[in-house]
């Protein structure tokens, strides 16, 4: 083992970095459990999607222009998050901060649109207790929105750390994990967009 370490120091691979990569794997395991959480919410939604209890259905409620904007905003933010990771690999702290900030702003834009949509729906009388369809809808889409919110808070904290400490093994690992989280949220949204909205207005 000591032999490897010697070889690795030459390649800037310290024990610390090895430890950090183990933490990234732990974070991946968290994402896996989160996938299972969402699968249960999706199953619930798919089962209950036809139960309107006399209330409004997807055709009356969903406003596709807003949803399409949300989709492309999140897709773009997934891309800019990837660009932050490229800057990270190139060791450019300014690039990381810049692209992460862009990603965060896009995330806020996404959330604003989503909250506007929810407020609009509630004003139409479609609340979480109106029907089984709406309960499942708000739970599924709201849980995704909550994840995005947590991601933005995390991103803000990380931006402060990057400003203060620059790039080191720890901040690098955190940027890596955050980008995994953000891409994961985009994947979940693709399925929300497909199964909830597109199949809803079909």
């Amino acid at each position: 083992m000591a032999h490897h370490t010697a070889a690795q120091t030459a390649h800037h691979h310290s024990h610390e970095e090895e430890h950090e990569s183990l933490k990234t794997m732990g974070f991946w395991m968290f994402l896996i459990t989160d996938v299972i959480l969402f699968s249960v919410l999706f199953a619930t939604f798919i089962v209950l999607r036809g139960n309107f209890n006399g209330g409004p259905g997807p055709h009356e409620l969903f406003q596709m222009p807003g949803v399409i904007a949300e989709t492309f905003i999140l897709l773009t933010s997934s891309f800019t998050c990837g660009l932050a990771l490229l800057s990270l690999n190139a060791g450019k702290v300014k690039g990381v901060i810049g692209w992460l900030a862009v990603t965060g702003i896009l995330g806020i834009a996404f959330l604003t649109l989503e909250i506007t949509e929810f407020v609009h729906m509630v004003h139409e009388g479609a609340t979480i207790s109106t029907s089984a369809f709406l309960t499942a809808f708000y739970t599924l889409v709201g849980t995704h929105g909550l994840h995005v919110t947590i991601g933005i808070v995390w991103m803000t904290g990380l931006l402060i750390q990057l400003k203060r400490n620059g790039l080191n093994a720890k901040t690098k690992r955190k940027v890596n994990n955050l980008s995994l989280y953000w891409h994961f949220l985009d994947i979940i949204w693709i399925f929300v967009f497909s199964f909830v909205y597109l199949m809803g207005v079909m």
């Binding site: 989709t71 990837g82 490229l86 693709i190």
Partner: peptide
């Protein structure tokens, strides 16, 4: 760790697939 090119290709493909 991927390149700008692979990210751009991935981005374009996901837009098309949306």
């Amino acid at each position: 760790h991927g390149s700008v090119k692979s990210y751009v290709i991935g981005f374009i493909l996901s837009i098309v697939l949306t």
